[in-house]
């Protein structure tokens, strides 16, 4: 009973426990992988896991903030695809690559601003809006690039698919870690971060406390658009090619990572550390399942189960403690 109480009193206790669980899971998958393949703990695993997961992981960061405010952005993968297609189109048509990249990022900002405006100014539900822009942005990608594939990007850029010089670290992963640090600091140590949590937990109180709820939500969608466009550039250079279906369907992976990282779908709860751990667990899991020849598609089962467990577990413990409390109350009434 006393341990139960101490758990109750900790700051966001469920999350602490969840992150601890993620660490255990990470260790477990690594031991499992190492057992199956002697190469597992080598740098290749680490590198490829980082490479495979980079874009999803990067897009999961703004997604985390958006979900914490109680909204969602399903258009991220389409924005990635649009950015990749646009880069390809502009490059094929002889644009300076830097200029092309700049335009892609601006398009990302504009796309995010459209989401943000529809959600904050018109007050439309974010899930419906971003399903709409998911279709719209993918559609524009199709218009831009059609069924063509853009190739032949300068080697100085496609080098991004190799490890960072003199290390075994994938560029994706490094960028993710740097961004995660920034997002982590913003979310957990700034006034903006506090506001984001307050908006997710009690939007009215947040507004009554002088927090500019709409402006913050709008900005988060802009950031999400920008980062997704950036992920599109990264993806293109790593694959050395781009097509209109680049990153098709990744949005749900991004959401899954965030939720698996302990972000509550109702908003107001979660940490960046959790998301980073979730990325690591997924990466390591994928590597170890690949090591025992489980196909990428079949690995979805594990992904899905983990996602379900991550929401079922806190829910079940919650209803368990509810029942316990109810029983206790009944006892008090009875005496």
């Amino acid at each position: 009973m006393s341990t139960f109480k101490t758990l109750l009193s900790g700051r966001s206790r469920a999350l602490v426990r969840w992150e601890f669980g993620l660490v255990l899971l990470l260790i477990a998958t690594m031991i499992f992988g190492a057992n199956e393949s002697k190469y597992f703990l080598g740098w290749q695993t680490f590198f490829f896991a980082g490479l495979n997961f980079g874009e999803i992981a990067i897009m999961a960061l703004p997604m985390t903030l958006i979900i914490i405010t109680g909204e969602i952005d399903l258009s991220v993968a389409s924005m990635l695809g649009l950015s990749a297609s646009l880069l390809g189109y502009l490059f094929i048509h002889g644009w300076n690559i830097w200029l092309a990249m700049g335009i892609c990022l601006i398009v990302g900002i504009l796309g995010g601003a459209l989401n943000g405006a529809l959600i904050t100014i018109l007050g439309l539900p974010s899930i419906a809006v971003t399903i709409g822009t998911l279709t719209l942005y993918r559609g524009i990608a199709l218009i831009v690039l059609g069924s063509n594939t853009a190739q032949g990007f300068p080697v100085s850029f496609t080098k991004l698919s190799l490890p960072i010089a003199h290390t075994h670290i994938a560029w994706d992963f490094a960028i993710f870690i740097v961004l995660a640090l920034i997002f982590g600091v913003v979310l957990h140590s700034t006034a903006l971060g506090r506001s984001i949590f307050a908006i997710g937990l009690q939007p009215e109180t947040a507004f009554f406390s002088g927090i500019r709820v709409k402006r913050i939500k709008f900005s988060l969608y802009v950031v999400s658009g920008l980062i997704s466009a950036f992920a599109g550039l990264l993806y293109t250079f790593q694959q050395s090619s781009s097509a209109s279906d680049t990153g098709l369907g990744l949005e749900l992976n991004v959401v899954a990572i965030a939720l698996f990282g302990g972000i509550s779908i109702f908003g107001g709860r979660g940490t960046i550390i959790g998301v980073v751990l979730a990325v690591c667990v997924f990466g390591s899991l994928q590597a170890s399942l690949t090591a025992i020849n489980v196909s990428a598609q079949a690995q979805n089962i594990v992904t899905g189960c983990l996602l379900l467990v991550s929401v079922l577990l806190p829910n079940l413990t919650q209803s368990f403690s509810d029942t316990k409390r109810k029983l206790q109350r009944r006892k008090v009434v009875g005496t």
Partner: peptide, 29 residues
């Protein structure tokens, strides 16, 4: 899971999206 364990449908059916797709892949092989 949605009605009786009271987990938000978005999350449950997203999880099931993956699980069913994975089971499908195992069967198709």
């Amino acid at each position: 899971i949605v009605a009786y364990a009271r987990v938000p449908a978005l999350v449950v059916t997203l999880g099931m999206l993956y699980i069913i797709r994975g089971v499908d892949a195992l069967l198709v092989n």
